[in-house]
Computed example of a mutant assay.
Amino acid sequence: MTSPHASVALIGTGLLGEAIGLRLLQQGITLHVWNRTPLRCRSLLDAGAQHVEDLASVPQTSDVIITVLRDGPTTARSVAALGDLAHHCLIPMGTMGIVEIRQLAEQTKQQGGQLLESPVLGSRPQAFAGTLLLMAGGEPSLFERHQPLLRHLSERPQLVGPVGSGAACKLGLNQLIASLTHAFSLSLRLIQQADVPVETFMDILRPSALYAPTFDKKLERMLDSHYDNPNFSTALLRKDLLLFLEEATAAELNPEGLSGLATLLCKAEGSALDGVDYCALHELTGSENSQ
Protein backbone atom coordinates (compact mmCIF):
# COMPACT_ATOMS: atom_id res chain seq x y z
CA MET A 1 0.00 0.00 0.00
CA THR A 2 1.41 3.40 -0.93
CA SER A 3 1.07 6.54 1.13
CA PRO A 4 -0.63 9.81 0.17
CA HIS A 5 2.86 11.27 0.72
CA ALA A 6 4.09 10.39 -2.76
CA SER A 7 7.35 12.29 -2.24
CA VAL A 8 9.45 12.55 0.91
CA ALA A 9 12.84 14.12 1.53
CA LEU A 10 15.30 12.30 3.79
CA ILE A 11 18.20 14.14 5.43
CA GLY A 12 20.75 11.80 6.98
CA THR A 13 21.57 8.42 5.46
CA GLY A 14 23.64 6.76 8.15
CA LEU A 15 22.93 3.25 9.41
CA LEU A 16 19.36 3.91 10.50
CA GLY A 17 18.60 6.61 7.94
CA GLU A 18 19.65 4.36 5.07
CA ALA A 19 17.39 1.55 6.32
CA ILE A 20 14.44 3.95 6.75
CA GLY A 21 15.01 5.23 3.22
CA LEU A 22 15.14 1.76 1.71
CA ARG A 23 11.93 0.84 3.51
CA LEU A 24 10.14 3.92 2.15
CA LEU A 25 11.31 3.17 -1.38
CA GLN A 26 10.06 -0.39 -1.00
CA GLN A 27 6.68 1.00 -0.01
CA GLY A 28 6.39 3.07 -3.17
CA ILE A 29 7.46 6.45 -1.80
CA THR A 30 9.35 8.80 -4.11
CA LEU A 31 12.41 9.66 -2.06
CA HIS A 32 14.82 12.57 -2.30
CA VAL A 33 17.96 12.15 -0.20
CA TRP A 34 20.76 14.31 1.14
CA ASN A 35 23.80 13.50 3.25
CA ARG A 36 26.81 15.58 4.19
CA THR A 37 28.88 12.77 2.63
CA PRO A 38 27.16 12.09 -0.72
CA LEU A 39 28.79 8.67 -1.04
CA ARG A 40 26.60 7.48 1.84
CA CYS A 41 23.55 7.97 -0.38
CA ARG A 42 24.83 5.40 -2.89
CA SER A 43 22.67 2.43 -1.85
CA LEU A 44 19.54 4.59 -1.79
CA LEU A 45 20.30 6.05 -5.21
CA ASP A 46 20.86 2.55 -6.57
CA ALA A 47 17.45 1.61 -5.14
CA GLY A 48 15.72 4.48 -6.92
CA ALA A 49 16.05 7.54 -4.69
CA GLN A 50 16.84 10.93 -6.17
CA HIS A 51 19.83 12.89 -4.94
CA VAL A 52 19.50 16.47 -3.67
CA GLU A 53 22.67 18.46 -4.20
CA ASP A 54 22.28 20.95 -1.37
CA LEU A 55 20.08 21.42 1.67
CA ALA A 56 18.57 24.69 0.46
CA SER A 57 16.86 22.90 -2.42
CA VAL A 58 15.40 20.08 -0.28
CA PRO A 59 12.07 21.89 0.40
CA GLN A 60 11.51 22.18 -3.35
CA THR A 61 11.30 18.38 -3.65
CA SER A 62 8.80 17.40 -0.94
CA ASP A 63 6.36 18.76 1.62
CA VAL A 64 7.50 16.22 4.21
CA ILE A 65 11.13 16.21 5.38
CA ILE A 66 12.46 13.40 7.60
CA THR A 67 15.74 13.91 9.43
CA VAL A 68 17.79 11.06 10.88
CA LEU A 69 20.85 12.87 12.19
CA ARG A 70 23.30 12.26 15.01
CA ASP A 71 22.12 14.84 17.53
CA GLY A 72 20.15 18.00 18.20
CA PRO A 73 22.76 20.60 17.21
CA THR A 74 23.46 18.82 13.90
CA THR A 75 19.74 18.66 13.19
CA ALA A 76 19.19 22.33 14.04
CA ARG A 77 22.00 23.43 11.73
CA SER A 78 20.67 21.29 8.89
CA VAL A 79 17.13 22.60 9.35
CA ALA A 80 18.38 26.20 9.37
CA ALA A 81 20.02 25.55 5.99
CA LEU A 82 16.67 24.49 4.53
CA GLY A 83 15.38 28.06 4.60
CA ASP A 84 11.67 28.68 4.02
CA LEU A 85 9.57 25.74 5.30
CA ALA A 86 6.10 27.16 4.64
CA HIS A 87 3.62 24.33 4.04
CA HIS A 88 6.25 21.76 5.06
CA CYS A 89 6.27 19.27 7.93
CA LEU A 90 9.57 18.36 9.55
CA ILE A 91 9.72 14.88 11.09
CA PRO A 92 12.93 14.38 13.14
CA MET A 93 13.55 10.69 13.90
CA GLY A 94 16.97 10.89 15.55
CA THR A 95 17.49 10.98 19.31
CA MET A 96 17.44 14.49 20.75
CA GLY A 97 17.05 16.13 24.14
CA ILE A 98 13.73 17.49 25.36
CA VAL A 99 14.96 21.08 25.31
CA GLU A 100 16.60 20.54 21.92
CA ILE A 101 13.47 19.24 20.22
CA ARG A 102 11.34 22.04 21.67
CA GLN A 103 13.85 24.58 20.41
CA LEU A 104 13.81 22.89 17.00
CA ALA A 105 10.01 23.08 16.93
CA GLU A 106 10.21 26.82 17.56
CA GLN A 107 12.93 27.18 14.94
CA THR A 108 10.81 25.27 12.42
CA LYS A 109 7.85 27.51 13.21
CA GLN A 110 10.00 30.60 12.66
CA GLN A 111 10.93 29.15 9.27
CA GLY A 112 7.23 28.76 8.47
CA GLY A 113 6.89 25.02 8.97
CA GLN A 114 5.44 22.49 11.40
CA LEU A 115 7.23 19.79 13.39
CA LEU A 116 6.16 16.30 14.41
CA GLU A 117 8.90 14.65 16.46
CA SER A 118 9.04 10.92 15.77
CA PRO A 119 12.02 9.23 17.45
CA VAL A 120 12.11 5.48 17.01
CA LEU A 121 13.27 2.48 19.02
CA GLY A 122 14.82 -0.24 16.93
CA SER A 123 17.56 -0.42 14.36
CA ARG A 124 18.14 -1.55 10.80
CA PRO A 125 16.31 -4.90 10.94
CA GLN A 126 13.19 -3.27 12.39
CA ALA A 127 13.37 -0.41 9.88
CA PHE A 128 13.58 -2.85 6.98
CA ALA A 129 10.59 -4.77 8.35
CA GLY A 130 8.52 -1.67 9.16
CA THR A 131 8.36 -2.63 12.84
CA LEU A 132 10.14 0.30 14.50
CA LEU A 133 8.54 1.51 17.74
CA LEU A 134 7.67 5.13 17.00
CA MET A 135 6.84 7.65 19.73
CA ALA A 136 5.52 10.90 18.28
CA GLY A 137 5.22 14.29 19.94
CA GLY A 138 3.18 17.11 18.48
CA GLU A 139 -0.30 18.27 17.53
CA PRO A 140 -2.85 15.41 17.28
CA SER A 141 -4.11 16.73 13.92
CA LEU A 142 -0.56 16.71 12.52
CA PHE A 143 -0.02 13.18 13.79
CA GLU A 144 -3.25 11.98 12.17
CA ARG A 145 -2.35 13.63 8.88
CA HIS A 146 0.97 11.81 8.68
CA GLN A 147 -0.10 8.43 10.06
CA PRO A 148 -0.12 6.78 6.61
CA LEU A 149 3.55 7.66 6.17
CA LEU A 150 4.53 6.68 9.72
CA ARG A 151 2.79 3.32 9.33
CA HIS A 152 5.26 2.38 6.61
CA LEU A 153 7.90 2.39 9.33
CA SER A 154 5.96 1.35 12.43
CA GLU A 155 3.05 -1.03 12.87
CA ARG A 156 1.59 1.12 15.63
CA PRO A 157 2.91 4.68 15.79
CA GLN A 158 1.96 6.28 19.09
CA LEU A 159 1.30 9.91 19.89
CA VAL A 160 2.71 10.22 23.40
CA GLY A 161 2.01 13.92 23.97
CA PRO A 162 3.18 17.38 22.89
CA VAL A 163 6.60 18.10 21.42
CA GLY A 164 9.22 16.91 23.92
CA SER A 165 7.24 13.87 25.01
CA GLY A 166 8.74 11.69 22.31
CA ALA A 167 12.26 12.76 23.25
CA ALA A 168 11.58 11.97 26.92
CA CYS A 169 10.36 8.46 26.03
CA LYS A 170 13.30 7.81 23.71
CA LEU A 171 15.89 8.94 26.24
CA GLY A 172 14.20 6.83 28.92
CA LEU A 173 14.38 3.78 26.68
CA ASN A 174 17.98 4.38 25.64
CA GLN A 175 18.97 4.77 29.29
CA LEU A 176 17.55 1.27 29.81
CA ILE A 177 19.65 -0.03 26.90
CA ALA A 178 22.77 1.24 28.63
CA SER A 179 21.80 0.12 32.12
CA LEU A 180 20.59 -3.35 31.13
CA THR A 181 23.67 -4.03 29.02
CA HIS A 182 25.99 -2.87 31.78
CA ALA A 183 24.18 -4.89 34.46
CA PHE A 184 24.19 -8.04 32.32
CA SER A 185 27.88 -7.63 31.52
CA LEU A 186 28.81 -7.40 35.22
CA SER A 187 26.68 -10.40 36.17
CA LEU A 188 28.14 -12.41 33.31
CA ARG A 189 31.69 -11.65 34.37
CA LEU A 190 31.00 -12.50 38.00
CA ILE A 191 29.50 -15.91 37.32
CA GLN A 192 32.35 -16.72 34.95
CA GLN A 193 34.90 -15.76 37.62
CA ALA A 194 33.11 -18.17 39.96
CA ASP A 195 33.29 -20.95 37.32
CA VAL A 196 29.52 -21.12 36.91
CA PRO A 197 28.68 -22.33 33.37
CA VAL A 198 27.11 -19.49 31.41
CA GLU A 199 24.27 -21.68 30.16
CA THR A 200 23.45 -22.75 33.72
CA PHE A 201 23.15 -19.11 34.70
CA MET A 202 21.02 -18.38 31.61
CA ASP A 203 18.73 -21.36 32.34
CA ILE A 204 17.97 -19.77 35.72
CA LEU A 205 17.70 -16.24 34.36
CA ARG A 206 15.45 -16.84 31.33
CA PRO A 207 12.25 -17.94 33.14
CA SER A 208 12.67 -15.29 35.84
CA ALA A 209 11.12 -11.84 36.04
CA LEU A 210 14.64 -10.44 35.71
CA TYR A 211 15.10 -11.61 32.13
CA ALA A 212 15.22 -9.20 29.20
CA PRO A 213 15.45 -10.48 25.59
CA THR A 214 18.41 -8.19 24.97
CA PHE A 215 20.50 -10.46 27.22
CA ASP A 216 20.31 -13.35 24.75
CA LYS A 217 20.58 -10.97 21.83
CA LYS A 218 23.98 -9.76 23.06
CA LEU A 219 25.24 -12.88 24.85
CA GLU A 220 27.17 -14.43 21.98
CA ARG A 221 28.74 -11.11 21.03
CA MET A 222 29.94 -10.60 24.58
CA LEU A 223 31.29 -14.13 24.97
CA ASP A 224 33.12 -13.99 21.62
CA SER A 225 34.16 -10.31 21.83
CA HIS A 226 32.54 -9.85 18.43
CA TYR A 227 31.21 -6.34 18.05
CA ASP A 228 31.47 -5.65 14.33
CA ASN A 229 28.56 -4.63 12.07
CA PRO A 230 26.78 -2.49 14.66
CA ASN A 231 23.23 -1.23 14.38
CA PHE A 232 23.88 1.14 17.30
CA SER A 233 27.39 2.11 18.33
CA THR A 234 29.09 2.61 21.67
CA ALA A 235 29.65 6.28 20.79
CA LEU A 236 25.92 6.84 20.22
CA LEU A 237 25.01 5.03 23.43
CA ARG A 238 27.39 7.25 25.39
CA LYS A 239 26.00 10.35 23.71
CA ASP A 240 22.43 9.38 24.61
CA LEU A 241 23.27 8.43 28.20
CA LEU A 242 25.01 11.77 28.76
CA LEU A 243 21.99 13.51 27.27
CA PHE A 244 19.71 11.56 29.62
CA LEU A 245 21.84 12.67 32.58
CA GLU A 246 21.55 16.31 31.48
CA GLU A 247 17.77 16.08 31.18
CA ALA A 248 17.40 14.21 34.49
CA THR A 249 19.49 16.84 36.28
CA ALA A 250 17.46 19.63 34.67
CA ALA A 251 14.31 17.89 35.90
CA GLU A 252 15.78 17.91 39.45
CA LEU A 253 15.97 14.12 39.60
CA ASN A 254 18.87 12.27 41.21
CA PRO A 255 20.66 10.31 38.47
CA GLU A 256 23.93 9.85 40.36
CA GLY A 257 23.59 6.06 40.15
CA LEU A 258 24.24 6.37 36.42
CA SER A 259 27.33 8.52 36.77
CA GLY A 260 29.64 5.54 37.09
CA LEU A 261 28.26 4.03 33.89
CA ALA A 262 28.74 7.32 32.08
CA THR A 263 32.35 7.47 33.31
CA LEU A 264 32.88 3.90 32.14
CA LEU A 265 31.52 4.65 28.67
CA CYS A 266 33.72 7.73 28.45
CA LYS A 267 36.74 5.41 28.65
CA ALA A 268 35.80 4.19 25.16
CA GLU A 269 35.90 7.67 23.65
CA GLY A 270 38.38 7.84 20.79
CA SER A 271 39.09 4.10 20.97
CA ALA A 272 38.21 1.25 18.62
CA LEU A 273 35.23 0.49 20.85
CA ASP A 274 33.49 3.70 19.83
CA GLY A 275 32.53 2.59 16.34
CA VAL A 276 31.43 -0.96 17.11
CA ASP A 277 28.27 -2.38 18.67
CA TYR A 278 27.36 -0.82 22.01
CA CYS A 279 27.57 -4.13 23.86
CA ALA A 280 31.33 -3.67 23.52
CA LEU A 281 30.99 -1.92 26.88
CA HIS A 282 31.48 -5.52 28.08
CA GLU A 283 35.17 -4.93 27.35
CA LEU A 284 35.12 -2.15 29.94
CA THR A 285 33.73 -4.21 32.84
CA GLY A 286 36.66 -6.62 33.12
CA SER A 287 39.12 -6.44 36.00
CA GLU A 288 41.73 -4.60 33.92
CA ASN A 289 39.29 -1.72 33.48
CA SER A 290 38.03 -1.57 37.05
CA GLN A 291 40.72 0.72 38.42
Rank of each mutant, 00 (worst) to 15 (best):
G122T: 01
S123F: 02
R124M: 02
P125E: 04
Q126R: 01
Q126N: 05
F128R: 11
G130T: 04
T131D: 02
T131W: 07
L133H: 08
L133N: 06
L134A: 11
G137L: 01
E139A: 01
S141D: 13
L142H: 04
L142S: 04
E144K: 14
R145Q: 08
P148Y: 01
L149M: 07
L150T: 11
L153V: 14
L153G: 14
E155K: 07
P157R: 04
P157A: 04
P157N: 06
V160T: 13
G161V: 00
G161I: 01
P162F: 02
P162D: 07
G166R: 03
G166S: 05
G166Q: 03
A167W: 06
A167P: 07
A168L: 10
K170Y: 11
L171W: 00
G172W: 03
L173S: 06
L173A: 07
Q175R: 14
I177W: 15
A178F: 03
S179F: 14
L180H: 10
L180Q: 12
L180Y: 13
F184Q: 05
S185K: 00
L186S: 09
L188F: 05
R189W: 03
L190N: 09
V198G: 10
V198S: 08
E199C: 04
I204V: 14
I204W: 12
L205C: 06
A209R: 04
L210E: 12
Y211V: 02
F215S: 04
K217A: 07
K217R: 11
L219P: 00
E220G: 10
R221K: 12
M222V: 01
L223V: 09
L223C: 07
H226K: 11
H226T: 02
Y227L: 04
Y227G: 01
P230S: 01
N231W: 12
F232Q: 08
A235H: 14
A235R: 13
L236V: 14
L236W: 09
R238F: 13
L241M: 03
L242D: 12
L243N: 05
F244W: 15
E247T: 11
A248E: 05
A248K: 12
T249I: 02
T249Y: 03
A250D: 14
A251I: 06
N254L: 13
E256L: 12
G257L: 13
L258H: 11
S259Q: 15
L261Q: 06
L261N: 09
A262S: 12
